[in-house]
Amino acid sequence: MSIIQLDNLSVTIQNTPILSGVSLDISQGDFVGLAGPNGAGKSTLIRSILGLQPFTAETATLFDSPIRQFKDWHKVGYMPQKQTNKAKNFPATVAEFVLLGRLSTKHWPRIISAKDREAVNNQLTKLGIDHLANRPLSTLSGGQQQRAFLAKALVSNPELLILDEPTNALDPEIRSEFFEILQDLNQNHQVTIILITHDTGTIGQFANKLLFLDTKVLFWGDFQDFCADPSMSNYFGSSEQHHICHQHD
């Protein structure tokens, strides 16, 4: 089943081309590592897929529905960058915050039911933060906050999970735990994952596909193919290519 299909997607902002000619097809169960230098258009691509960024494309579908007409947002969990700054000044308990993730499963008037509260409790329990339910979001540690953000993204039981540099501010041990949670979701619950990361040395341990962008697609395909691709050796240099592939089991 195709989760995302893009054919020749381009984005221009104030007459500056940000992305051009992006074509890809992400299938159910894929774990895609999305990498590239700063300004490569990674976040812009994700914003386009989420309908937040105007684009041109021959085809752009999400769950086989044109992105511009897509309505089933409960199928998509999104964990954006820089939520920590917003959480710092927002007076919400963890449970209140995660509950917001249930709104995508409803239409107006979005009345919260006992079932929604139960879903929140279950999600917090699954991620091991149920004891933090009544704690203010702003008082959590970095690792606890990331779990709360993930709980919000997952509480609608999405089939596609998109994460924008979620492990940037985490120490290595917590980062590793976070990746294990993602791996479990992908392998045992068939959740399709797109993970934007600069951590190319680690992503190969978990992702089966790599999308490398630099305003256009430099590489899209299986990780193994990336490692064996001589044109990538020319682009990255064999040392950098080895670094990316080295961690890949």
Binding site: L52, W73, L103, R110
Partner: peptide, 22 residues
């Protein structure tokens, strides 16, 4: 009261609220 959760979500982050179909 009727729009409470939508108001809270838009107050936290307008784009995330939009992706939730609000």
């Amino acid at each position: 009261a009727v729009s409470y959760h939508e108001l809270v979500y838009v107050t936290f982050d307008e784009e995330q609220a939009q992706i939730s179909g609000i």
